[in-house]
Structure formats: structure tokens, C-alpha cells
């Protein structure tokens, strides 16, 4: 699969080119267009897996696209304005924030991983871990910036998109005290250590929602 990322960084789309017979998986609803020789099948990949995906904030079903009788093209987008990047999986594997997943090539298995740490990390209780060889496309709200972790670094939980899975991280208070952390507006942050890359998004859906939501009239029952 070859992926071209176009119209960065606010109106991004991913153009995925499939070889004949090659297939790929995408988040349900992510497909914007495809060539006619691409067949789409909807799979849950097993009830257990599907349910765990639901817990991870993803859809129950994922779509599989297969190019038949020649090369095919699939165009993918995200629901919100934002950016996309392609993660190369293989020697490096990635942890992906659960709502960031857009699609992946055939060789990549994207598994739901639950952890208590994940609950606080902004990746939700369940994060996604890539496995296998190929590409994984992730999307964001806001632009995506790569951050080279070298030593230690603190990242706001709401701005995480993906990180190399060999990086260690712990979820900590933003400042020394609990009250200060709450007042600072940052709440919990992730402290990363090791050598590798973290992708951050320049906006946070929850902060945006809180800012706009405060201005909306209360919902009538």
C-alpha cells in the first residue's frame, strides 16, 4: 500500500493506492471515495474484538477494502478538521490514541489494549497498539507535530496522537500538587522518557468542546 497525505494540515485526506489483490482496513465511515474495482466488506473481526474496540471509543465494525483485478484507490478522511500522518510499523511499533485511528495496510494488526494508565493518559482506558509490518494512518484534531523525545519530556494528555511503543511513559500531575494541577488547567500530563518520536496534535477536542460548549445554550430535555 502506498499512502499520499494531501491537504495538510487542516483539511487532510489520505489517498491509499492498493496493488491488485491487496487489501486494507479502515475505520468505519472514514472512506470518502474509492475506485470501482475495490470491494468493501464490513467485518467485526470477531465479537470479542469488536466489543473491545467499542470500549476503545472506536466503531464496532471496521471496513476492509480489497482491490480486485488491478490497482485500486481508496480515499480516507477524518470527521473533524485536522491532520494525518502515516506511521511505519515494523521495526518500530506504535501506540495510537484510540480516536486517532483512520486505516492500516493489510499486514498491520491494530489491537485494543486496555490499561488503567491509558484511562488517564487521554488515550482512554483502551489505547491501540500496532502489530506487524506495514503502514498505519492516524488522524488528529489540529495539526500534527512530531516531537523527538530524547531523555524526558512532558506532554499534555489531550494532545497525544501516537507514540513509539518502546517509549516509557507515566501519567503524572501537571505540577507538584493536585490542587495546582487542577487550577493550571492542564490536569494530568504524560511524562515520556526514552528515545523516539511522539506525535502531538496542536488542538485538543476536549478543550475545544469545553470552550464552545460553554457558549451554547443548555440542552432542553
Amino acid at each position: 500500500m502506498q499512502v499520499n497525505i494531501l491537504y495538510r494540515s487542516s483539511q487532510t485526506m489520505a489517498q491509499c493506492w492498493l496493488e491488485a489483490g491487496e487489501s486494507m482496513t479502515a475505520e468505519s465511515g472514514a472512506m470518502m471515495g474509492m475506485s470501482t474495482n475495490v470491494a468493501m466488506t464490513t467485518q467485526s473481526g470477531g465479537i470479542g474484538k469488536a466489543i473491545s474496540r467499542m470500549f476503545a471509543g472506536e466503531s464496532f465494525f471496521r471496513n476492509t477494502f480489497t482491490a480486485q483485478g488491478g490497482k485500486g484507490e481508496v480515499l480516507l478522511t477524518t470527521p473533524l478538521c485536522g491532520d494525518m500522518v502515516v506511521l511505519e510499523c515494523g521495526r518500530t511499533q506504535w501506540m495510537v490514541q484510540n480516536s486517532a485511528y483512520v486505516g492500516s495496510s493489510h499486514g498491520v494488526d491494530v489491537q485494543t489494549q486496555g490499561s488503567l494508565k491509558g484511562l488517564f493518559s487521554g488515550a482512554g482506558l483502551f489505547g491501540l497498539a500496532t502489530l506487524g509490518q506495514g503502514q498505519c494512518v492516524v488522524g488528529s484534531f489540529g495539526a500534527i507535530e512530531p516531537l523527538a523525545v530524547s531523555g524526558e519530556m512532558v506532554i499534555d494528555t489531550g494532545h497525544l496522537v501516537a507514540w513509539e511503543s518502546h517509549l516509557q511513559y507515566k501519567v503524572t500531575k501537571a505540577t507538584t500538587g493536585w490542587i495546582d494541577s487542577w487550577l493550571s488547567g492542564e490536569g494530568l500530563v504524560c511524562q515520556f522518557s526514552g528515545q523516539g518520536y511522539v506525535y502531538v496534535q496542536t488542538r485538543s477536542t476536549s478543550e475545544y468542546g469545553a470552550a464552545i460548549g460553554a457558549l451554547l445554550p443548555p440542552r432542553q430535555a
Binding site: E152, V154, I155, A174, D180, S181, E186
Partner: peptide, 17 residues
Amino acid sequence: AEAGAMVARASHVAMAV
């Protein structure tokens, strides 16, 4: 900076409210 504006920082940079 405005509260809540931080995206990332070097870990040796102290943040005080």
C-alpha cells in the same frame, strides 16, 4: 501562559500556577 495552553514542555521546565 493562559491556563490549559500547554501542549508539551521539556521535563526540567517547571510549571507553577
